[in-house]
Amino acid sequence: MALLEINNVSKHFGGLKAVDQVSMSIEKGQIYGLIGPNGAGKSTLFNCVAGTYGPTLGAIIYSGKDITGWKPWDICKLGIARTFQIVKPFQTKTVLYNTMVGAFIRTSNRSEAEDRSMEVLKSFKLADKAHTLAKNLTIADRKRLEVARAMATEPEMLLLDECMAGLRPNEVDQTLDEIRLIRDRGITIFMIEHIMRAIMSVSDRITVIQFGRKIMDGTPQEVAKDERVIKAYLGESYAAA
């Protein structure tokens, strides 16, 4: 049985169909990529899964449970954590404080939350910055904190929304290693990414959407060869030029 099942999910904003009858199913332990041109509806689909807003139509099933329309905090408690494309650290608080907010979901004990947070920070090489204020971090560290904070909630599944955008090539490689490490700990990853090289190398399976609709899904090799996908992206690069 799939861990996360997205069944015919649509999200309409007024007359706009931001997501239009998209289905996919993600197996436990996979790294699942979601790609598509700008404005394809990737983040909207993410927001539906994470509970930012309920889908207009369709259902979202997580390990056999219908979580359609659940609130974000309940979804997080269930074991789905997410990051934001535009990172949202608690700026005036320390790095440790940021992760502790996440860790508190599994314990109400402060020192326990602190210990768990420090462990997470160590695994993300942020331990030496634990007492730095989040607003003083570099972009790369902020992005890493965003993931670390989500990991502190001890999720079974992690939704990563463009966690590599704006990073330098060597930082991208580092993040890819970290993502693989997270997967190796048994955590399923569902990620949106624009950097093709990155998502192609790390994903087990990829879904491509355009104009809110699913074009195809398959292995990275299949996706790379697919004519519709190439067209969707070439079209975009022409427009950009």
Partner: peptide
């Protein structure tokens, strides 16, 4: 404090 600063982020970390 988290909810006061970044409500959306706090919600996604399990805070009502």
């Amino acid at each position: 404090a988290a909810g006061g600063e970044e409500p959306e982020a706090a919600q996604s970390l399990g805070v009502n």
